[in-house]
Design a protein around this nucleic acid. Structure first.
Length: 345
DNA sequence: AAGGCGGGGCA
DNA sequence: TGCCCAGCCTT
């Protein structure tokens, strides 16, 4: 049996029972694929359940407020996915009569839909012979064919796409694509793959040449930048606080946070920032107390945020204050969400 | 071509 | 701790 038939057979015997495998509705397949970008199935699953419940159709998603979409997305990360998701839902409703396009090349035009996602939807929903190449596929192909081209080099990307075109099953591209990804996730795992019980072991070149543990090859890691965040948490006796929306470029675009003072090192004397803070929150002569003695280090893949929360109590009324009862309605990064849960307003 | 963009799980 | 995860967009 050849590579693709073997993979598909393995899939039929080992596939997990996942909700998006019970449908060919392009809306739901699209939704699941966006959510699973750079995200494990276990992490994305509860979000998929929530979204399909709240937004059963693309029309429901299109008519929602972006802040509601972001709120439901809260905790999943890479929030531009959520913004693009909402944008494309409106695009589908307004410009495609509510119907997703049915070809790889047409799907590729949608915002937030790249080579992988267009291939996934085209094959799963419309049986187009469009091979997917995600992290799992890179690993399976690199090992099986013993290819040490870096998977994130231009040449590597071209080569693995070519290999994927050569192995994709023309009779059943939908199941083949899901099969090779599932095989990578469950059997040909990054760490300690089950080569002993692998149905492809006899023809796997990486295994034969003892390269399994070093494949796939990936170029350099991202350098981590350190940043120091000081959040000003206002507690007014009128049951209000201040939140601001993060705009422009950078992390957490569109999410809310407390007023922020970013410094280039840890703050040891808050009085040096007293005036700056008072101007920012439009209050005078406030007393500032430190909530956490040691900075909370919130780790993103490319930034470490050394975060201190400073509490300001006031009896004055706030300009643009929000009622404390409504604080949980705002989409916030996990760092802020954790604080809100820990801090007894 | 390279860098930015989250949060969590695992060895 | 470092690496990886059903990648995409911007510069």
């Amino acid at each position: 049996m050849n590579f693709s038939k073997e993979i598909i057979q393995w899939y039929f015997q080992n596939k997990r029972d996942l909700p998006w495998r019970k449908t060919k509705d392009p809306y739901r397949i699209w939704l699941s694929e966006i959510m699973l970008q750079q995200t494990r199935v276990a992490q994305g699953l509860p979000y998929y359940e929530k979204f399909t419940e709240v937004f059963p159709t693309v029309y429901d998603l299109a008519k929602a407020e972006e802040s509601q979409v972001l709120k439901l997305w809260q905790g999943l990360g890479y929030y531009s996915r959520a913004r693009n998701l909402h944008y494309t839902a409106k695009d589908i409703v307004n410009n495609y009569n509510g119907e997703f396009p049915s070809s790889y090349s047409a799907l590729l035009k949608l915002k937030g839909v790249g080579d992988y996602t267009a291939s996934a939807i085209a094959s799963i929903c419309f049986d187009e012979i469009a091979p997917v190449v995600d992290g799992n596929v890179y690993r399976v192909l690199a090992r099986y064919f013993d290819v040490d081209l870096p998977i994130n080099s231009t040449e590597g990307i071209k080569m693995f796409k070519k290999l994927a075109f050569e192995v994709i099953d023309h009779d059943d591209p939908a199941n083949f694509n899901q099969a090779i990804m599932e095989f990578g996730a469950v059997q040909c795992k990054p760490q300690s793959p089950y080569c002993i019980i692998c149905p492809l072991a006899s023809s796997c070149l990486g295994l034969k040449n003892q390269h399994v543990t070093t494949l796939p090859v990936k170029l350099k890691k991202t350098k981590v930048k350190n940043r120091w965040f000081n959040y000003i948490v206002i507690v007014s006796n009128q049951e209000e606080t201040l939140l601001e929306e993060r705009k422009g470029k950078g992390i957490w675009q569109g999410l809310y946070q407390f007023p922020l003072v970013e410094t280039d090192k840890a703050v040891d004397d808050i009085e040096q920032h007293q005036l700056e803070i008072e101007e920012m929150i439009a209050l005078k002569d406030v007393s500032i107390t430190q909530f956490n003695q040691k900075p909370i280090i919130h780790k993103l893949s490319h930034q470490h945020l050394h975060t201190t929360f400073w509490v300001v109590e006031t009896t004055n009324s706030l300009k643009n204050g929000i009622p404390l009862q409504e604080i949980r309605k705002y989409p916030v990064p996990i760092l802020i969400g954790n604080f809100i849960e820990a801090f007894d307003f």
